[in-house]
Design a protein around this nucleic acid. Sequence first.
DNA 1: GTGAATTGTCAAAGCGCTTTGGAAACACGT
DNA 2: ACGTGTTTCCAAAGCGCTTTGACAATTCAC
Lengths: 341, 341
Amino acid sequence: MNLKQLSELLGLSQTTVSRALNGYPEVNEATRERVLRAVKETGYRPNKAAQRLATGKAGSIGLVMPTAPGDYSDVHFGEFLTGLGEEAVRHDFHFVIMPADANDEMGALRRLAISGDVDALFVAYMRGHDPRVPLLKSLSVPFLVHGRSFGSEPDYPYLDIDNEGAFYDATKLLLQLGHTRFALMNGPEPLDFAIRRKRGVIAALAERGLELPEDCISHTPMTDEPGQAAMERFLQLPEQPTAVLCSSTVLALGAIRAVTQAGLKLGEDISLIAHDDVLPHLKPENFSVPLTTTRSPLRAAGVRIAQRLIGTIKQEGPFPEQELWKTELIVRASTGAAPSR
Amino acid sequence: MNLKQLSELLGLSQTTVSRALNGYPEVNEATRERVLRAVKETGYRPNKAAQRLATGKAGSIGLVMPTAPGDYSDVHFGEFLTGLGEEAVRHDFHFVIMPADANDEMGALRRLAISGDVDALFVAYMRGHDPRVPLLKSLSVPFLVHGRSFGSEPDYPYLDIDNEGAFYDATKLLLQLGHTRFALMNGPEPLDFAIRRKRGVIAALAERGLELPEDCISHTPMTDEPGQAAMERFLQLPEQPTAVLCSSTVLALGAIRAVTQAGLKLGEDISLIAHDDVLPHLKPENFSVPLTTTRSPLRAAGVRIAQRLIGTIKQEGPFPEQELWKTELIVRASTGAAPSR
DNA sequence: GTGAATTGTCAAAGCGCTTTGGAAACACGT
DNA sequence: ACGTGTTTCCAAAGCGCTTTGACAATTCAC
């Protein structure tokens, strides 16, 4: 069933039917009713490709799905996507996901933009001096960045959380508890959030004249195994750290395993603060020692990003071009006073 | 830059350029070279919407993304998607993801099929007597089901793992170890895999004249919290089970917490076998007591499903319409002889 | 009852591509 | 010179929709 057939069936022109469907005012209410009823009966659906060709609007948001296994954890990706989807479904938008391995992100992005398949692009997992920013700017497709790109002029639309502030505050808390030997379990080094979190820690330490030694920093994928390995390494250091900051609750999972296996007590021998993206299957309050966290729900970020993106496409703006969300510091049992050794 | 402009630039007709690009034989190699070079220089990309309208082929696979939070764990969804993507990228396919909440899956599926946006559909999280199967059959779009629908004639294309066999074997193992009191931590009751896994357990028990009491079965979302709650409930039963089967390593995570908190020893007081979808961040061999599992990589299933779907679209078949993958039973430390009480 | 303003409808052009059905252009043997 | 094949290219017709510009039909003011 297509427009032509439907219009013939109704004895109307395609124009009228099309207008009736798209809510144009210049069509009689009675006629519109009639059309709508016929649509229901016949199950007619406009062909999206044709619609797209005619309007230039696709009703979809493009994103490049990283396929490199283990490059970053897909737990976070899935959770974020759920947020995006939650909002998209309200506007009858969908996503065109183009999978691409890490070394062809740029190409995939470009193809997606030029294909006419999407009205807007979304990118995440930003790195420092990320080459995708200039690419996107040159692409004449609206876009929105999740995160930022350290070192680039922040003149593009983004939504980010205050990574530096979060880890600054967390470090401050640990300092107040008397800790002096710190370690940081971070995500992959090039990633923007990793850069900023490290800066936050270093800044807070610097205020007390402390430093973060290189061997007290780990950069690993955000899964539990590397977390365990990293913590094991820290625990073997001659100057064992007593305060550990951790970029993800997933990493913390492994870290805690290492602490337990070493016969140490979390919140006593070792204090730990992790960043919590609020993954539904991993609640820091349920850890055997509930975890102190810097919290910022990933899913909510997804919802907001979809909102802004769809709003931009529908020209419903104006939205703020740059948003920086504060995180919450939630104190639980994994942080305690520094052991008096 | 569009075809017309490009052809004018080259002094050729649109036909010839189009043919050159799509590898038709009736065009001079020299001409083709010339065209290809021009494409590189101008960065021309065919408009997908137009291509789609003309050919009826979309180069994409549609799937409905469940947005209902907690309905089933998105961890599994993300991992599976990665597998799909891994294969899709090799064929320059992409996915159109239509988010939909649980009560509009059918509508979303239908819309996707009729929209002309996709050349094939994929569905998962099958339930018993799933109404989506008849819908898909009526839709005249090729489709592939991940899992099966218990109670429906298995005459549709699917890829499933042998859930019944897996849990039958696992139960057998525990029986051999002398266990007689069993419990099953399952996924949501309507889901096909839950139905079959339960059957597997019951079948194995029946061979020894044993039964699985109703209060030794839990049906919960596949996340750790409900897993913990379920196990806590089991442990308070007058006839405490000693052997527990678990539908996911994520559930097991919670279950083990409950066991530990009750002061019991995994692999001694309680034997546990979980199904392992091989989630990259949750390795059963790294659990503090390594977990005995029935293994079947979800990602590999994703790859295979993409292969079949794309092959079908490109008419490269024939593929087997039905595939049933065996699982591996991997014995680790979480299973031991029944305690002699 | 007239002309102007408003309303409801339509025919046709176009969006950018593929594909059908020819038609030039060239080669070849006779 | 002619017919016969091949090769290489093209004009034009869709694909299913939206949208422009125009035209009947209706309403209104006076």
